[in-house]
Amino acid sequence: MNKLSPADLDKMSKAPSDKPKDWIKVGLSSCGIAAGADEVFNFFVEEVKKRNLQIEIKKCGCAGMCYAEPLVEVNVEGLPSVIYGSVNKDIATKILEKHVISKMLVNDYIFEVLI
């Protein structure tokens, strides 16, 4: 494949971090998966397709808040990015309907312990 040169590396690391695109990140490490994070991930992927939403669903590792897995971070333009904890399909639905579509944070599931 394409071997990188030092210059390529510079270019890639400085690549404009896009426009602030909306995304949802699901923590998919052992601890998250054990708590059902991959189901939540798949649920988001399907629902977003079904509802034709313009939001990217991404994977990430464990942020360390094992007590509140599955963890889902949501970044929607105009709202502060927050982490929801102990997310299941019900909460995931609320996140999509309220946070992503109606642009309001969802009550009772936010873990605001960002370091």
Partner: peptide, 10 residues
Amino acid sequence: IQVVRVADIG
């Protein structure tokens, strides 16, 4: 201003 109840506030 939106008010939101949270599960953990750090």
